[in-house]
């Protein structure tokens, strides 16, 4: 089986019609969002962890310090950027190129898609010798992106928003947008716990995401890390 046939079968990209060594995949706003988002996640995870498990106490006058206040401010500021960024990302999914839409859906009814997932699982279990070539996310990455990133991001925005609404109070816009979701959890302790668990799911996602990106950069047939910087996906074997 040639890679040419594969890409045709997968119907991804247009590499088979005009063979070339690179494709412009990720447009500039999307790349900017990716790195800002990545920074937000790091900041949110670190500050979130510290909110739940604060640093050692300091003595002196309360008015001389604002440690928890600062940690919480940074968390909230990063959360706003994360949340607004997510809205911007949705906008770009609408107006951007087809790759910008990929993380928002799973082609659940497509047989060939699940075949691709099976193939990728085989590749990661060292059962398949060669990965296939994809212009966007490979099917397994696509699945992981949807469930571990997109769904989790929505969950964290909703739970985080509901917690933030606890502070802004009944009737605030945050309460109107997120409060109903928080009420589903009953005791607010549950809301806090779920948000905290969500953080760990995202941490696990980040570990896998970073590892796989680097590994695939080295071992697969297309570029990864540099793609998210330049937007160009390079095909090492020319897509042949």
């Amino acid at each position: 089986m040639t890679s040419q046939a594969e890409t045709t079968a997968e119907g991804l990209g247009s590499a088979h019609t005009i063979p070339r060594r690179s494709v412009y995949v990720y447009e500039a706003p999307l790349r900017l969002w990716h790195w800002v988002n990545a920074a937000c996640i790091v900041v949110l995870a670190v500050t979130g962890y510290l909110i739940a498990s604060p640093p050692p106490s300091v003595m002196g006058q309360a008015s001389d310090h604002f440690i928890m206040g600062d940690i919480r401010f940074v968390h909230f500021a990063a959360a706003y950027i994360f949340g607004i960024g997510f809205l911007g990302r949705i906008y770009w999914a609408i107006v951007g190129n087809e790759h910008a839409r990929q993380i928002f859906y799973v082609p659940f009814w497509s047989r060939s898609y699940w075949g691709g997932v099976a193939h990728e699982i085989g590749w990661y279990l060292f059962l398949k010798k060669k990965p296939r070539v994809y212009v966007g996310h490979n099917p397994l990455a696509h699945l992981a992106m949807f469930f571990l990133y997109t769904v989790m991001a929505v969950f964290m925005i909703m739970t985080g928003g509901a917690m933030y609404a606890e502070g802004t109070g009944l009737g605030s816009w945050q309460d109107r947008v997120f409060g109903w979701f928080g009420a589903l959890f009953g005791n607010p302790q549950n809301l806090h716990t779920w948000h905290h668990m969500g953080m760990w799911v995202i941490v696990i996602f980040v570990i896998i995401h970073v590892y796989v990106a680097i590994r695939e950069d080295i071992m697969s047939r297309q570029s990864m890390v540099s793609t998210m910087i330049s937007g160009e996906r390079m095909f090492k074997d020319g897509g042949q």
Partner: peptide, 30 residues
């Protein structure tokens, strides 16, 4: 939303706690 009177149950104890300044400052009983 949980059928509690808003006049008494719309804010958390933390929101109006007189020790809140110590929380924001990062000053805790250990």
């Amino acid at each position: 939303r949980q059928r509690r009177p808003k006049m008494f149950y719309s804010q958390r104890i933390h929101d109006k706690c007189y020790r809140r300044a110590h929380f924001d400052a990062g000053q805790f009983v250990e």
